[in-house]
């Protein structure tokens, strides 16, 4: 898929995703070694976006499995279409049991869910397993077979093996420790907050029309806020939101009044806002 790390960087940038060297290296390795990529990091740094960008770059179809508490085999893997099976049985009244049995457990009556979809067929695919930590531990067991051998066993049909391996991205917010077994099958990538240089470029890409000096001061203030030990440090998504807000407000430069009025866009807790106001010397009126 990719020829070098720089190739990854350039092509992701074309798709509108500015990657750090760490991200590009790991994506390159995941592609070369054929291993799934486990991405962790704070909310809003572009974990899901990465999978979308890779799919776009590779011209692949994005298959997404959104995990939540209680997601199970029939939602993640496959399900038999019971209603259709019943119709089939009542339609063919005269045939023998053996004929009916072999027929109703065929591909036609199978409803593929994301995991099965991702490994069937020959077209390139990117499988995104989003918020893996929200799923129950049992689902992890299910993922192990899929991620290590890229195969799914359907008892009535046999084992389906991928003829073409999908590029797999798992994301996690670390609300729960994923099991060691799952982690060992993946390449691990932690996406943190980008450095100032990269963040400036992201802001200018995502908010066209923003003045370079304003982008620079926005990034500086956000960097200072992140160093402050807040309950929820502002993420890249918040930086971009803030830059958009400032642009909409028509603020050409940052000053006390503007920052105080728009602090709610980047900080989501009242404690944090108070703390930031004190540290940035914004005198409350």
């Amino acid at each position: 898929m990719f020829t070098s790390v720089d190739d990854v960087l350039a092509r992701l940038a074309e798709a509108g995703y500015l990657a750090s060297p760490a991200v590009a290296t790991t994506v390159f390795l995941a592609d070369r070694l054929g291993k799934p990529l486990l991405v962790e990091g704070p909310a809003g740094v572009g974990k899901t976006e990465l999978a979308k960008a890779v799919a776009q770059v590779a011209g692949a179809r994005l298959v997404r499995l959104q995990c939540y508490e209680g997601v199970d085999e029939s939602r993640a893997l496959y399900e038999w279409n019971h209603a259709k099976q019943l119709l089939r049985i009542s339609a063919g009244r005269d045939e023998t049991w053996d004929e009916a049995r072999t027929d109703i457990f065929s591909e036609e009556f199978l409803l593929p869910r994301p995991l099965l979809t991702a490994i069937r067929g020959n077209d390139p695919k990117v499988l995104l397993i989003d918020e893996t930590d929200k799923a129950d531990v049992e689902v992890e067991g299910l993922l192990l077979e899929v991620l290590s051998d890229f195969q799914v066993t359907v008892p009535e049909l046999g084992t389906v093996t991928a003829s073409r391996r999908p590029f797999v991205v798992l994301t996690s917010n670390a609300t729960r420790e994923l099991s060691e077994a799952l982690r060992r099958r993946c390449l691990f990538l932690h996406i943190g907050f980008p450095d100032a240089e990269l963040e400036r470029r992201i802001v200018r890409l995502k908010v066209p029309g923003i003045d370079a000096a304003l982008a620079e001061s926005v990034v500086r203030v956000v960097g200072a806020l992140r160093a402050m030990d807040l309950r929820k440090a502002p993420s890249v998504a918040e930086t971009v939101d803030w830059a958009r807000t400032l642009l909409a407000l028509g603020a050409g430069t940052l000053d006390e009044a503007v920052v105080r009025d728009s602090l709610g866009v980047i900080l989501k807790h009242q404690d944090d806002i108070l703390k930031a106001e004190a540290k940035l010397d914004l005198d409350a009126v």
């Binding site: 060297p21 760490a22 290296t25 790991t26 070694l33 962790e40 670390a174 390449l187 691990f188 990538l189």
Partner: peptide
């Protein structure tokens, strides 16, 4: 980065 991605499991 490559070695970190292959050898490490947590942040």
């Amino acid at each position: 980065e490559g070695l970190a991605a292959t050898l490490l499991h947590t942040t």
